[in-house]
């Protein structure tokens, strides 16, 4: 799993996605091929602004083993200002989250491969007050 994580570090540490110059569409996670243009795709890497709003969310109570420390935690479907949608953890009081809430990106730990393994960092979101 180490190379698999490392390979996408750039896109996890920040919201770096794809842009198709042929149809002006944005994608996250990044794609090598535009699903609208396929062979005519002109994909370019592009950093996205880190602001968005909550389209929908859940509060996870039954968490996978590696996320037990953080439960209950919020996983949200977030729409960025350019229309791209991102699934991410939203760091806030579960009582506070609501549809339409404005959020911004934050750099956080997603977990680690045990006490002696590597640490998985990535992008989460926090309320944008």
């Amino acid at each position: 799993m180490l190379p698999r994580f490392w390979r996408k570090i750039k896109y996890r540490y920040d919201l770096v996605g794809s842009y198709c110059e042929n149809c002006q569409s944005f994608f996250y996670p990044p794609r090598n091929l535009c699903p609208h243009c396929r062979r005519r795709s002109k994909i370019k890497e592009i950093p996205f602004d880190g602001k968005g709003r909550v389209l929908s969310y859940t509060v996870v109570h039954d968490a996978p083993e590696e996320y037990k420390e953080e439960k209950p935690y919020v996983v949200a479907l977030i729409e960025l200002e350019n229309g791209v949608r991102v699934i991410s953890q939203l760091v806030c009081d579960p009582e506070e989250v609501e549809i339409g809430m404005e959020v911004k990106k934050a750099f956080r730990k997603y977990g680690e491969d045990g006490n002696s393994g590597i640490i998985y960092y990535g992008t989460k979101f926090v309320p944008d007050n």
Partner: peptide, 16 residues
Amino acid sequence: PDVDEDTATISVEAAR
């Protein structure tokens, strides 16, 4: 710090 914060996350947020 929060459970998902450490020196690296604090450094990145301050630097950003």
